[in-house]
């Protein structure tokens, strides 16, 4: 077993090295594709961090993403880049704590719509502020950040989200959250401080989303609320995570990667009919993969494990 672990760790390191060197070998398009893949991998995994164990479906992704992007739009030309990222992190965290404290007592069903309303509320407030106070809507971001920089930052973020997710799963916090997901009343009776646990996790997940928004912002030159607070991002992330399987750490990534590639393929091959085909493929996936990609993998393992044991016995 430990040999297997070692091999896995080595493979992970090698894979990481390959990914880190990728920008030096591929052209602008594949770099853009890789950025897209990383972006959704981080967003979906961060989403799964909170929503997987607690089973709260959050549509607030775009609220945090947009706040991150807007922080860069406002401060990007004024301050040093790391400082900008730090401020974005702080804003995202404070916002998440406030939102978490006020919303997490809602039942799962209403949390969905609440988080959606929240994203829209923040967007409207940003618009109102820009229109009436700063009198500009649509900010220009001219900062010295190349596509490669964006890629590497996202890669670091992706590693961070997996490491933190792995650590949480092994901590008391992770255990507490799984109990909350199973039955909140039981969790309370076990002496778990439900609110603290949920808010902590919600905040961690939100900080990642905020950072993705901040890192992506320099890619577009121009930020306006409809670009930063694009509601489809929230939906895409939920769909990706659910499709992959949100109850495992690596599940959302298994949804995010194939779906991003699929959207890309359809957009490239069927530009005029992509909507229709996307819909049909989506339905097929839903009917063919009832438990997400993770479920497929679990089934596969369940079928093959006995044989492997037999082989092991023979050897």
């Amino acid at each position: 077993m430990s040999a297997m672990r070692l091999a896995a760790a080595l493979a992970a390191c090698a894979g990481l090295a390959v990914l880190a060197l990728l920008p030096t070998y591929v052209d602008a398009y594949y770099l853009a594709l890789a950025i897209g893949l990383l972006q959704f991998t981080v967003l979906a995994t961060a989403w799964g961090l909170f929503s997987g164990p607690t089973r709260y479906v959050s549509l607030a992704t775009t609220a945090f993403f947009g706040v991150g992007a807007y922080t860069v739009a406002v401060l990007g030309e004024l301050l040093h880049w790391p400082l900008v990222l730090l401020i974005a992190t702080a804003i995202g965290a404070v916002m998440a704590v406030v939102v978490g404290l006020s919303t997490l007592r809602l039942s799962g069903l209403h949390f969905v719509i609440f988080t959606f309303g929240l994203a829209e509320l923040i967007r409207q407030l940003v618009i109102w502020f820009e229109v009436n106070k700063s009198r500009v809507l649509g900010r220009y971001v001219f900062v010295d950040i190349t596509q490669k920089d964006i890629y590497w930052q996202l890669l670091v973020l992706a590693v961070a989200v997996f490491v933190i997710g792995w650590l949480i799963a092994r901590s008391r916090l992770g255990f507490a959250l799984r109990i909350i997901g199973e039955d909140e009343t039981v969790a309370k009776h076990c002496g778990i401080n439900v609110t603290v646990a949920k808010v902590t996790l919600f905040t961690i997940s939100a900080v990642f989303m905020t950072l993705v928004g901040a890192i992506m912002a320099p890619r577009w030159t121009y930020i306006e609320p409809s670009i930063a607070f694009n509601a489809t991002i929230s939906f895409e992330v939920v769909i990706m995570a659910l499709l992959g399987g949100a109850h495992r750490l690596w599940g959302p990534a298994l949804g995010a990667i194939p779906l991003t590639l699929l959207f890309e393929f359809l957009a490239a091959r069927f530009p005029t009919a992509s909507t229709l085909i996307m819909g049909v493929i989506f339905l097929l996936i839903v009917y063919a993969l009832p438990a997400g990609v993770v479920g497929l993998w679990d089934n596969f393992r369940r079928q093959w494990r006995p044989q492997r044991v037999e082989q092991g016995a023979k050897a």
Partner: peptide, 22 residues
């Protein structure tokens, strides 16, 4: 050669990179 940018800045950027390099 034409694509749909789905009204998204990110898609528009990527579509153009595809047009140029691919």
């Amino acid at each position: 050669v034409q694509y749909d940018d789905r009204s998204s800045a990110e898609e528009a950027a990527r579509s153009l990179e595809r047009l140029i390099t691919q």
